[in-house]
Design a binder for these strands. Structure first.
Length: 196
DNA sequence: TGTAGGATCCACT
DNA sequence: GTGGATCCTACAG
């Protein structure tokens, strides 16, 4: 069920961003398990993508983990407040990443409620990149963590996704990226029918 | 060493 | 639909 390391090591990051829809992101942090189905992702395509932190082959302390072999996490702080969780993909020295932007909460709902201070765990508890890390306990501590370990991992639960239910749009918040801001690298899973 | 701005969210109106 | 929270990163000097 847990995705093997080889899954992450293709260089087709756009394909992976799409393929991760319907997979399950699960964390076991501080002894508490939370998780849910991935419903929104964005692809960041290495050194030629103006929106990517690794654009222009920028190797810095922050971006270093993106250059590792696919299958580790890349977590960074955004706007000084939000931790954003990315899946590093691709081969060694190819800094591709998929930003996980939304999950549908399914496991550990009580824990999510406690962590976020909300009063119910409906889809809004984890429908944004900063919200899902908060609900799932993901922080900078786990930057570079192996996704084949038992802290943060992704499972294939054989959910079949009809391509008809995948919507592709431009990415959010990357207006600075020139023409790359318009690439259709954001993928949303239309899952209204499974839960209402 | 200093500073501008950011892969966001929420509480307002 | 707007703005404040809040702090790290990158880059200029």
């Amino acid at each position: 069920m847990k995705l093997p390391i080889s899954y992450y090591q293709t260089n087709d990051v756009v394909y992976l961003a799409k393929d991760l829809l319907g997979k399950f992101l699960i964390t076991n942090i501080e002894g508490l398990v939370t998780g849910g189905m991935i419903v929104e992702t964005e692809a960041y395509a290495g050194i030629h993508d103006l929106a990517s932190h690794a654009y222009g082959d920028r190797k810095t302390n922050r971006t270093r983990v993106m250059y590792r072999e696919g299958g580790v996490s890349y977590i960074y702080l955004c706007y000084g407040i939000h931790h954003l969780f990315n899946v590093v993909t691709g081969k060694l020295d190819v800094p591709h990443a998929v930003l996980i932007r939304g999950i549908f909460p399914m496991f550990g709902l009580k824990t999510m409620i406690k962590r976020t201070g909300k009063n119910k765990a409906d889809y809004t508890i984890s429908n944004g990149p900063g919200k899902l890390t908060k609900a799932m306990g993901i922080s900078l501590l786990y930057n570079g963590a192996l996704l084949t370990d038992d802290t943060i991992w992704i499972e294939d639960r054989r959910i079949r996704i009809d391509p008809f239910n995948i919507q592709a749009t431009r990415r959010i918040g990357v207006d600075y990226a020139g023409s790359d801001a318009f690439l259709p690298y954001r993928f949303l899973l239309n899952h209204k029918k499974t839960h209402t």
